[in-house]
Amino acid sequence: MLKEIDIILDEHEGAAREDLIPILQEIQENQGYISENAIVKVGDYLNLPTSKIYGVATFYNQFRFEPKGKHHIQVCRGTACHVLGSSTVLDQLEKHLKTKADQTTRDGMFSIEVVACIGACGLAPVICVDGEFYAKVTSDSIKEIVETYRNKID
């Protein structure tokens, strides 16, 4: 894993502080999240303090700091979904999985991400699991959806 970060950094030879965000994006793309090690490495490479990099990274919603779960659930909190109760959906999901938005369950099975708008307002409220969309979800239906993923055999 760490080697891959080095490879990404090597591709950015001569990079400076303005390249920080693209580098972080590539690392997240590759690793699924931004680890502490990644931040330290980027800091060494760009000669930037880790506090600064962590500050920039936490400013943006797109970066996550925990590894994704085996199944990644995106909950849309856009306007249309909000009007049709997506905050309850998120609430119920957090309770059911005993974890919080932007975090991963302890068994590493599920992670929740809040997204601003998923672009499927006609189907609100929407969640998306591993790239698969689920339309007009309810407090009950999300539990079923989650359980089918839990029992899924690869």
């Binding site: 502490e36 931040i39 303090p49 880790t50 506090s51 990099i53 962590y54 936490t58 400013f59 943006y60």
Partner: peptide, 28 residues
């Protein structure tokens, strides 16, 4: 010239702290 602390998060969640919002003792 140290930058042991910086702003973390955004908006009403902002907080000033060391990297990874850890204790000052881990910072520079």
């Amino acid at each position: 010239g140290i930058s042991a602390i910086d702003f973390i998060n955004r908006g009403s969640n902002s907080v000033v702290g060391p990297a990874f919002n850890k204790g000052l003792n881990t910072s520079s």
